[in-house]
Amino acid sequence: MIRKAIPSDLNAIHKLTQSCAKAMIVKEIYQWNEHYPTRSRFEKDVELQELYVLEEEDLIKGIIVITELMDDEYIPIEWITTENKNNLYIHRLAVHPDYWGEGYARQLMNWAETYAKSNEYISIRLDTFSQNKRNQQFYETRGYKKLGDIFFPKQSEYPFHCYELVL
């Protein structure tokens, strides 16, 4: 089941993303660290009602943030849909490492794409770490087009690739 996150989910969500960060570092993917994502970031996501959890058997196995707000870092990107109106942005998609490869990320993205279509958004935009080849392939296989790079210096010296899927 995918549902909106609530404040009592925050400990499990933060532990999930800490586990993801550790598992990615083992794979030499330095995407997340002590600066991102933070518990306070998730508190704000819950407050804004933009954070969703994938829950099975009372366990949070994955999360996704969907928002209409475009981050300032995205401004220089030449998006396919040029007006920057009626777009949905995806952030902080994560699945607990114990469940990697079981289709939960696909399930979260299917849900987000269905949500976007049913709410008549014109596109979905997101970014993924340039050193995470698996994520890039995941989005490109789904039809997302790579458009340009942005940087988050507190996260990595490497860029993040921006993608868009026109609906």
Rank of each mutant, 00 (worst) to 15 (best):
A112H: 06
A112R: 01
A112F: 04
A112E: 00
A112K: 05
A112T: 03
A112L: 06
E113C: 00
E113R: 00
E113G: 00
E113L: 03
E113Y: 02
E113I: 03
T114K: 12
T114G: 06
T114S: 10
Y115C: 01
A116W: 01
A116P: 04
A116E: 00
A116G: 08
A116T: 05
K117M: 15
K117V: 15
K117N: 11
K117Y: 05
S118Y: 12
N119G: 03
N119T: 12
E120M: 10
E120A: 11
E120V: 12
E120F: 11
E120W: 10
Y121Q: 01
Y121F: 14
Y121R: 09
Y121E: 01
Y121T: 03
I122Q: 10
S123W: 06
S123H: 09
R125G: 05
R125K: 13
R125T: 01
R125H: 06
L126Y: 08
L126I: 08
L126P: 02
L126F: 05
D127S: 10
D127Q: 09
D127H: 09
D127L: 11
D127K: 07
D127W: 07
T128D: 02
T128R: 08
T128I: 06
F129K: 12
S130F: 12
S130V: 13
S130T: 14
S130W: 10
Q131P: 04
Q131N: 10
Q131M: 09
Q131T: 11
Q131S: 11
Q131H: 10
Q131D: 10
N132W: 07
N132Q: 08
N132G: 05
N132R: 12
N132V: 08
N132D: 05
N132K: 12
N132S: 08
K133M: 11
K133A: 13
K133E: 13
K133H: 11
R134S: 15
R134L: 15
R134V: 15
R134H: 14
R134K: 15
R134F: 07
N135R: 08
N135W: 03
N135G: 02
Q136K: 12
Q137R: 13
Q137A: 15
F138N: 05
F138R: 10
F138K: 10
E140Y: 01
T141Q: 14
T141N: 13
T141K: 14
R142N: 03
R142F: 03
R142W: 03
G143W: 04
G143I: 14
G143R: 06
G143T: 05
Y144K: 11
Y144H: 07
Y144Q: 12
K145A: 09
K146H: 11
K146S: 09
K146Y: 09
K146N: 13
L147S: 01
L147W: 02
L147F: 09
G148F: 13
G148I: 07
G148S: 02
G148Q: 06
D149R: 13
I150E: 01
I150L: 09
I150T: 06
I150C: 03
F151E: 00
F151D: 00
F151L: 15
